[in-house]
Nucleic acid binder design. Sequence first.
DNA 1: CGTCCCCGTTCCGCTCAGTGAAACGCTGTT
DNA 2: AACAGCGTTTCACTGAGCGGAACGGGGACG
Lengths: 276, 276
Amino acid sequence: MSVRARSARVDTASVPNGGTGTEAADRVADVLVLFAHGSTSVGVSEIARELGLSKAVVHRILQSLVSRSFVTVDPDTREYRLGPAALALGARALRDVDLRRAARPVLRRLRDDTDETTTLSELVDDGRVYLDQIESRQEVKMTVELGRPHPLHAGASSRVILAYLPTERVKRIIDGGLPALTSDTITSTHALRRELDEVRRRGYATSHSERQLGAASVAAPVFNVESEVVGSLSVCGPASRFDDATTARFAPLVKTAAEEVSRALGWDDVGDAPGA
Amino acid sequence: MSVRARSARVDTASVPNGGTGTEAADRVADVLVLFAHGSTSVGVSEIARELGLSKAVVHRILQSLVSRSFVTVDPDTREYRLGPAALALGARALRDVDLRRAARPVLRRLRDDTDETTTLSELVDDGRVYLDQIESRQEVKMTVELGRPHPLHAGASSRVILAYLPTERVKRIIDGGLPALTSDTITSTHALRRELDEVRRRGYATSHSERQLGAASVAAPVFNVESEVVGSLSVCGPASRFDDATTARFAPLVKTAAEEVSRALGWDDVGDAPGA
DNA sequence: CGTCCCCGTTCCGCTCAGTGAAACGCTGTT
DNA sequence: AACAGCGTTTCACTGAGCGGAACGGGGACG
């Protein structure tokens, strides 16, 4: 019968929430989200306007949040800002986040979409290691060895990380030498730097037989809360299957997948105009 | 005024909330607090038991939180854990605190100089919370939980703050009781006041196993422009490594570091007349 | 294999907690 | 003095949310 026919007359409605939560809880969450992305310190009216709620409601929610220390009030300006409990919550979430766990479902979906092996790499010291892989279901496929360190100058998974590291760290790594792993490894400093520019421009990296003969891959970077690169996702397989058209098809898929993982790590896609 | 005499018949009541929020919002906040301090991954029933709520309520709250990405569900185990939005919220809370920003480089240098974990605490209400820490690089080290409130009478980081608070506020806090956190906590008013005098004379505080068994620390106060104490820096680690000689070596380092942070906040070390 | 237990989820009628418009007191601006 | 904004409080009404109970599923046990 009623089937939640609420939204009928509500123009001050909160976002329609896909599932079946409660409106009150949704509103509390919305207020917190606003604090997470809005300006540091806000007032009741501003929040009410932003969320389309009455001032009374916002005020009550804030009082509850204050009572639990999620936000604090400046007694002079009567403005609200995040408090210790928010900090504790975030510190805890940071500790719990596990790159591998965050990436796993995404890796699997990416494998299903491409039918090639997908991998997750993590930046470790001045190199990287494979943290996880979901293997292709095809008979001829590529697999990688988890946990062993690889240098950052060869291969798509490596180079896409290198491309987003701070310049002085890139310099140090390049100065450390560019040993050839195969006959196709880029060993010229100049060529590598040009390649890194290209990677940043496109947002993903590709390679053919650079690190491993007969292997090709497409990789995109994974970022953390601080927008630092912490690893990469890749789709990889036999070079014979990675022609230009295929690579072009995979690139946006890998990029989207990597962004999704980044967001799960708290990374925030800046460059979105908020509000109207 | 009516004072909201609701709680009359409620035995399943949530914590009585000092002010005038809404019960629904209080409950949402309580769930989040539980996530902040409880175990990484929890189920509906456990939360319901812990908070004295019905499973239905908890389930609805969680659905709202999931819809806003504050928590995520593992589709297999049906367990809930903190999600990206919580992380973003905390990251924001951390970024907003300017005390933290001012202290970070100093904390890092102090860690490098001492090779022990260094921490930053902030005065909040009549307690303090850890705002930040830089961990020791040694294998056996101490770490603290950010954001959770601690009382001001136990431990070096706490007591050094207490020592520089206005006398009437010190009185109020002491009158609030001195619960023992370990067998070594100072619980005598007289002993505590003598200790506070000593802290003020030396400009730093030390503790052994007072707040946490087996932990030791040396702490110094941080002041703002008005020469009010707003927090403290500490060097802390396993008590076994903090003998008298080491403590004596650390003390001036911590003091200097704390002064540097204070100066970054606009504090001016010339006539420091507390209480004015 | 059935039994038990506890899990997370869903259902539904009752009811009081929460709603929002409006009033209020305040501060700073015109 | 009048205004315009703020955060807060009030109040009578009502539908959103409550919770007990039922449901479906997955281990553990015998």
